[in-house]
Design a protein around this nucleic acid. Structure first.
Lengths: 341, 341
DNA sequence: GTGAAAGCGCTAACAA
DNA sequence: TTGTTAGCGCTTTCAC
């Protein structure tokens, strides 16, 4: 509509306020070192003209963009379709917004997109990146690290074994899993099985780890599955066949737990009387609506997002200031008791 | 890491290739009108130096940003947490990526954010906007329209009654609803009820409309609900109390339909023998996993996103070319037969 | 405390 | 076809 009438520039504001461009610039950027009456005059001119700074011009000289890329590698469709990323994005968005940063979303669909993402980051469009690396063998995190853009990872990257100084935020998957299994053990269950997610994802591997830490070596009972309800069903059937006296199941997420519940009902086993079930995530629509409602390990997804953003912004602020912190933030999980265990 | 060694500029590439900056610029932007050997030399210099154009500098002169804002108004938490937006975002992302455009995500949490969004758009950071307006009385769409940024809406905006020339993409909610209800009628059901979503959302209103078009005026049986499983349960209970001989239910989405199924089971009604149930969305994790699996109306969410982006990009290309198309694209829905009807 | 002037890296007339 | 030149709108020394 008003595309033709191009927007007012600093120049225009300066003219209107009867000052120099430099002064307007100072006022617009906080007003330090400008005398009050002038500040006022400039502010008024800005308002009257509806002046908004041109970010491109500003970036050209400051080399800052006040923008952060969020990169989500999405090998599988379902990963993105679950509420997980939505919540995380929300946390990130809130934090970035509060600090006047923009969120540039980059979704990748596989190797073809890697080059594109690397090029984008190398292009210096953004000041930093928030990256979700789901799989152990994903080359993307490495690529990004190489570009040299300040980065914070969501979830422990598979290769983050102390060597490189990665910064990441993760839930306490091990601790949560331990808590879940301990609850089951405390309930007097003696055959506690675990249905894990794909073990090439660190979250799945870490939960399995937590299970192992509690269950004695001789009593390990594990089926690897895929984080889907259908996968949970298949795993539960296998479990029942392999070990009919199983009396407790810790599923690595709520979706699989819902499949477990279904199979148990179909096989006539009562929950929790015959078999106690615990999930992971506390994904409300699933956990609360299942029958019976699911006892599960809650992780605060939105908070994870918020903290990732906060960490990154802090790094960006410190830029040039030397000290690069590095290291991980691991958020606590909480056990939510419902009817299934 | 390599933050200190600032990236090579056009100048550097020109020097290395022994040509002028203008020539490099031409090559970088497609290479039209530059003789082959020169093109080759420039390309090589670009590669050797790892040159990537500075987008800020480019935008400053072209006034294009190759970036599009996606604005999601999110009054309710659950709206964003369902897979809907994730899928839509994916469609949008794919299309934008294919045309070298960036996706800037703006999540709003209420009135406070409106000003911020308006300012951002007015700031000319992006070439256009994709907006999801969920509620009839949402002031955001109007604000955005006023800013004068080319915009495409996702879902029919509540105020789009022919007057303003809005562009939007929507599913054929009315048609899909009609098809659902016709199926039920064709099955010989005589008391077909409808559980609607919040009627201040056009999708809910349009589905109700479709139901109305098929069911005779005297036989209308409607309960307004909220698109959640719990809401579906409450609505179904009310329906059963109000009209015990109800023999079919068309729920405005799958989530509510899952609640309906639960209540029916609890009340000892068989599905579909006693009561047939049809949902809307074909949200796989819900529709396929419910018991019995849900007959539902499928809408292609990802495709909606893709088309929104395509429409916007087309408008942007045509900019200055005069003709502003305007108008709506309504995508067909398909009935997916499963066991519940 | 304020203004003048020099670019930031690029594109787009215009000349050659 | 290629090069020269003039900005795009802003920040930031550096004088005053």
């Amino acid at each position: 509509m008003s595309e033709t009438a191009s927007r007012p520039t600093l120049e225009a504001v300066a003219a209107r306020a009867g000052v120099s461009r430099a002064t307007v610039s100072r006022v617009v950027n906080g007003g330090d070192g400008v005398r009050e009456p002038l500040v006022e005059r400039v502010r008024q001119a800005v308002d009257e003209l509806g002046y908004v700074p041109n970010q491109a011009a500003r970036s050209l000289v400051t080399k800052r963009h006040d923008a952060v890329a969020v990169i989500i590698a999405e090998p599988e469709t379902r990963v993105f379709a679950d509420p997980f990323f939505a919540l995380q994005l929300r946390g990130i968005s809130k934090e970035l917004t509060a600090h006047d940063n923009q969120l540039v979303l980059l979704l990748t669909e596989g190797r073809d997109d890697h080059a594109r993402v690397a090029r984008y980051l190398a292009g210096g469009h953004v000041d930093g990146a928030l990256v979700f690396s789901l799989h152990l063998d994903d080359p993307l995190p490495g690529l990004i690290q190489d570009v040299g853009v300040p980065t914070v990872f969501g979830g422990r990257p598979g290769w983050s074994d102390g060597t490189r100084d990665v910064v990441y935020v993760d839930s306490d998957n091990r601790g949560g899993a331990r808590e879940a299994v301990r609850l089951l053990a405390g309930l007097g269950r003696s055959r506690v099985a675990h249905i894990s997610g794909p073990l090439d994802q660190t979250s799945a591997a870490d939960r399995l780890d937590g299970y192992r830490q509690v269950v004695g070596d001789g009593r390990l009972l594990v089926v690897e599955s895929d984080f889907t309800p259908g996968g949970g069903e298949r795993a539960m059937r296998e479990l029942l066949d392999r070990c009919p006296d199983v009396d407790a199941v810790f599923a690595a997420n709520d979706l699989m737990a819902s499949g477990v519940l279904r199979v148990l009902r179909e096989r006539g086993r009562r929950v929790p009387e015959d078999v106690a079930v615990v999930g992971f995530d506390d994904m409300l629509p699933v956990a609360e609506q299942s029958d019976p409602p699911l006892t599960t390990v809650r992780q605060d997804i939105e908070e994870m997002g918020r903290i990732m953003a906060r960490l990154l912004l802090r790094r960006l602020d410190r830029r040039g200031g030397g000290e690069e912190p590095g290291g991980a933030v691991v958020l606590p999980t909480t056990l939510v008791r419902r009817a299934s265990a």
